[in-house]
Amino acid sequence: MTIKHHLSDDLLMAYSAGDLPEAFNLVIATHVSLCDECRARLEAYDALGGAVIEEQVAEMSMGSLEACLARIEGLPQANARAPRRGNGIFPAPLVDYIGGGLDAVKWRPLGLGARQAILKMGDNGASVRLLSIPGGTAMPDHGHSGLEMTLVLQGAFRDEGDRFGRGDIEVADDSLEHTPIAEPGETCICLAATQGPLRFNRLIPRLAQPFFRI
């Protein structure tokens, strides 16, 4: 697999530091599961985090060491878990949220053959959904009010002259008014996270927006 569209340094650093909402964390964890290049860069940012904490010294109160040793005493050693595995087109982090593979997704129709499934997040900093777009059709015409990440899991789409295939991630901000179009052929399945609700540019989808929560 050749991945051409990767994560930026600031997003990898923010994920490493734990500074992002859950929805973006999920998309990044899923991309890194597919992309060795971004995995290596992420590990370098984790190493930078190690270097940062290594030079910090903090005063601890009296009795802290004793309290710590008392807690540790009698704790069992954790057993190595079996490694988490993907299921079909879904890497492990996504399987954890869906509870299975493609056949476990609870799709809702969006019209014109497109479907979505909104995944439940623990915070509301950003929302994330699976999108299923039939080959040759456009994604629902939208703008968005903040950061948007779209990761391809199956098929491909074209946007602004670029092609995005499995594993590729498109990161856009609110300055980009774009219309991704699924390539003819296989249905395009994406994991898309957005900060703030999407704004639709055409009247009908805008009227439908409160019902579809897209």
């Binding site: 994920y15 490493s16 530091a17 734990g18 992002l20 909402p21 859950e22 964390n25 999920l26 964890a29 899923t30 890194v32 599961s33 995995r39 992420l42 984790d46 985090g49 190690g50 940062v52 904490i53 490694p83 988490r84 595995r85 993907g86 890497p91 492990a92 982090p93 954890d96 949220y97 997040m121 623990g122 915070d123 900093g125």
Partner: peptide, 21 residues
């Protein structure tokens, strides 16, 4: 660092931080 980061996320926010495969 990675263990302390995960503990901080647990302590201060409810948001999860899924790990890559």
């Amino acid at each position: 660092f990675t263990i302390a980061r995960n503990r901080r996320i647990d302590a201060l926010r409810k948001a999860r931080r899924p790990e890559p495969e």
